[in-house]
Every structure is written in C-alpha cells, then in structure tokens.
Simulated scan of single mutants.
Amino acid sequence: MMQHYRSNHPNHVHQLVASVSKHYYAGKDGLLKYQDKPFETSLAKLVGASRSHMVIYSLRDHYSKLFYAEVGFGPGMPSMRAFLARAWRPKPDQPDLPLCGVPELMLIPKTAQAAFPDVVTDIEHMGVGLVDVASGFQSGIQDINTVENSIGHYIGKPIDQVVSYLPTLSGWRAKYKKSTKEKSKADVWREHVPAIRLLPKSWAETPAAEPV
C-alpha cells in the first residue's frame, strides 16, 4: 500500500469520490432542503434511508486539480458508469472545462469500490490501474466540500436546478485565477496533457443523475 503518490501529467491519475451529503436532501415537494445537524447516512445505507439524500460524485485530475462533479438524489444511487462517461467525454458545451479522457491510474476509496464493484471491474478491464493508498483523499473531499458550500442559494428550489448547476460550477472553478499572473487549472491541463485516450464507445451514457 502506497503512503504517498504523485502524478506526472494530466490524465495520469484521477481521483473518484462518491459521498452522501451531510446536510442536503430532497423534500417530498421536490425542493432542496437543508438540515443543520449532519446526517450519518452512508452509501451502503442509502437505499433504506428515510429521506431522499443528495449524493455527490466528483472526479478530479490529480495533476491539474481540475474536477467534474454531479449530484443526484436517493433512495437509489445515481449511475456511476454514466457519471464517468460524462466526466471523461469531451465537453464542447463546456469550453471552460477541458477535462476529458481516460486516466492511466485511479484512486477510488474503499467505500466507493464496495458500492460500485461492477464499475471498478469495467475500469480495470480498460487497462486503468487502481492505486491502493493509505491516505491522500483530502483533495477529493475538498471538492465535495466545494459543492456543498456552493449550493446554499438553491435551498427551497427544485432539485433539477441543482443538478443542472453542478457542471457550471466545475467550469467556473476550472478557469478561476487568484491573480492575473497565475495560471488557471484549465491552463495547466491544456499545457501539459499528453495524447488523450478517449472512452470506448461500449460505455453507454444516460441522462445526468439517473437513478438505478
């Protein structure tokens, strides 16, 4: 088991994170709700949960720190295979987010591997290696926190508005610069990415956050 890891270029290592929101859920009226006391629901317990919890999926390129995120709502988990198809495909409709292509290696926490064993097998069949690390998911968790901290203004609004907003958030974060002298994450990705390996056509894509 690796204690530390590094990436050499964009699309060398991608981090996949799936997490049940600690605070957000869909009300019976179809509107986004917020509970101040954190939920203790996990991916493993999502199907039997009494609420329609929000689930956050995030894929991050470790080198450039670009990330692509989506949200869905329980009780069924959104399709992880479809999420990865959208994360890895070229995005001509999102010019600010150049992230696309299959990585050489992936970091997937044990909780996500247990929740999506078929997808993990499919990833390995594509020749993508799984890196077993003791720690290092702080950056992926940071993306989850970014999502949670960015949707407060959607409380009380239809959940489909939240679902539609997430790709926009990923694009905005990709082009963000702290100063005019700094390169954006999108700039770093474009300047250093090698040949892009596109996703096989056998990976079917379905609408965003479709329950399974």
Results as ranks from 00 to 15, higher is better:
residue 8 N to Y: 05
residue 154 Y to E: 14
residue 44 A to M: 00
residue 175 K to A: 14
residue 143 D to T: 10
residue 191 E to P: 03
residue 32 L to F: 09
residue 8 N to Q: 10
residue 98 P to Y: 08
residue 208 A to N: 03
residue 2 M to G: 01
residue 98 P to T: 13
residue 200 P to N: 12
residue 47 V to M: 02
residue 69 A to C: 09
residue 190 R to Y: 04
residue 126 M to R: 12
residue 55 V to K: 00
residue 79 S to T: 03
residue 195 A to P: 02
residue 164 S to V: 14
residue 78 P to I: 01
residue 17 V to T: 07
residue 175 K to T: 14
residue 83 F to M: 03
residue 62 H to D: 14
residue 137 F to H: 11
residue 103 P to G: 12
residue 56 I to Q: 02
residue 131 V to A: 08
residue 134 A to W: 03
residue 206 T to G: 00
residue 75 P to H: 13
residue 208 A to Y: 01
residue 94 Q to C: 06
residue 95 P to E: 12
residue 147 V to R: 02
residue 74 G to N: 03
residue 8 N to W: 07
residue 192 H to T: 08
residue 98 P to F: 06
residue 139 S to G: 04
residue 58 S to G: 04
residue 49 A to T: 01
residue 25 Y to C: 12
residue 89 R to Q: 13
residue 126 M to D: 10
residue 201 K to M: 06
residue 62 H to A: 11
residue 31 L to I: 03
residue 88 W to F: 09
residue 186 A to Q: 10
residue 164 S to D: 15
residue 1 M to Q: 12
residue 198 L to V: 13
residue 193 V to D: 08
residue 90 P to L: 08
residue 175 K to P: 02
residue 127 G to N: 09
residue 146 T to K: 11
residue 54 M to E: 08
residue 24 Y to Q: 12
residue 131 V to S: 05
residue 60 R to H: 01
residue 16 L to E: 02
residue 171 G to L: 10
residue 91 K to M: 08
residue 90 P to I: 08
residue 30 G to Y: 06
residue 67 F to V: 04
residue 47 V to I: 05
residue 53 H to P: 03
residue 200 P to L: 13
residue 26 A to V: 09
residue 120 V to Q: 02
residue 71 V to H: 01
residue 36 D to M: 07
residue 110 K to V: 05
residue 70 E to I: 12
residue 10 P to M: 09
residue 52 S to M: 09
residue 43 L to P: 02
residue 59 L to F: 02
residue 194 P to T: 15
residue 43 L to C: 06
residue 136 G to A: 11
residue 116 F to H: 07
residue 161 Q to S: 14
residue 51 R to D: 12
residue 23 H to F: 04
residue 35 Q to C: 13
residue 93 D to V: 04
residue 69 A to S: 12
residue 112 A to P: 03
residue 124 E to S: 05
residue 27 G to F: 11
residue 184 S to I: 15
residue 78 P to K: 01
residue 119 V to I: 06
residue 168 T to D: 07
residue 45 K to M: 03
residue 143 D to C: 07
residue 52 S to E: 15
residue 177 K to F: 05
residue 207 P to K: 10
residue 32 L to S: 11
residue 198 L to R: 10
residue 185 K to D: 13
residue 38 P to C: 05
residue 167 P to S: 06
residue 61 D to G: 01
residue 71 V to D: 00
residue 65 K to E: 04
residue 34 Y to G: 12
residue 88 W to Q: 05
residue 181 K to L: 15
residue 7 S to R: 07
residue 61 D to W: 05
residue 77 M to H: 01
residue 208 A to G: 02
residue 3 Q to F: 04
residue 137 F to W: 11
residue 144 I to M: 08
residue 138 Q to M: 06
residue 5 Y to E: 14
residue 81 R to L: 00
residue 136 G to V: 14
residue 8 N to S: 11
residue 67 F to T: 03
residue 172 W to L: 15
residue 51 R to H: 09
residue 68 Y to F: 15
residue 63 Y to P: 00
residue 26 A to Q: 15
residue 69 A to R: 03
residue 65 K to C: 03
residue 198 L to Y: 12
residue 208 A to M: 06
residue 84 L to H: 01
residue 103 P to I: 10
